[in-house]
């Protein structure tokens, strides 16, 4: 199964892990901001109350950066590492930073596009179609030799 295109279940689980990590990171940022405010103004300390727009924007930016860095670096994020998946180009090469960033923007903007892989004959999501990429099973720590 090494090198074959992954199905929707594996990809959803990997993305769910990645989303959880981003949310945990967002909570960490909130705690860090609160701690900083406490250290600067202990007497006037109150819990920060950011607006929903700011939170969503911050979370969205964190998600795009997290996905783009992971795909451009090793082809996988932490969630895909656990599920043994890797994002590669159609020729099997690692994505460039620009393609990874573009794929991350599409995924973050249209998460539901992931489910296109259910009906896609090549298990390709909307982001895969736009970025000309694919997600394959790859449990080895190196890049797979695409057959």
């Amino acid at each position: 199964m090494q090198g074959r295109r992954a199905g929707v279940v594996s990809r959803v689980m990997a993305d769910a892990i990645d989303l959880a990590i981003v949310l945990a990171t967002l909570v960490g940022v909130y705690v860090a901001v609160a701690a900083t405010r406490f250290l600067l103004h202990p007497r006037q300390f109150t819990w920060p109350e950011p607006s929903s727009l700011n939170l969503i924007t911050l979370g969205w930016l964190l998600l795009v950066a997290y996905l783009a860095i992971g795909w451009a670096n090793t082809g996988r994020t932490f969630g895909k590492t656990i599920l043994g998946l890797r994002v590669v180009g159609r020729d099997g090469d690692r994505l460039s930073l620009a393609r990874a960033l573009g794929r991350a923007l599409v995924c973050a903007a249209l998460p539901i596009g992931l489910f296109w892989c259910v009906v896609s004959a090549k298990n390709a999501s909307i982001a895969d179609l736009l970025a000309r990429s694919c997600v394959v099973y790859d449990w080895e720590p190196r890049l797979p030799v695409v057959s």
């Binding site: 199905g7 004959a121 695409v146």
Partner: peptide
Amino acid sequence: ADRAISSLVDRLLRRSQADPDAETP
């Protein structure tokens, strides 16, 4: 699970299975 869903979808769409190219880059 991926394979089960894929085969189910293939049956619903009356699509032939085991297309090697469909699962490789």
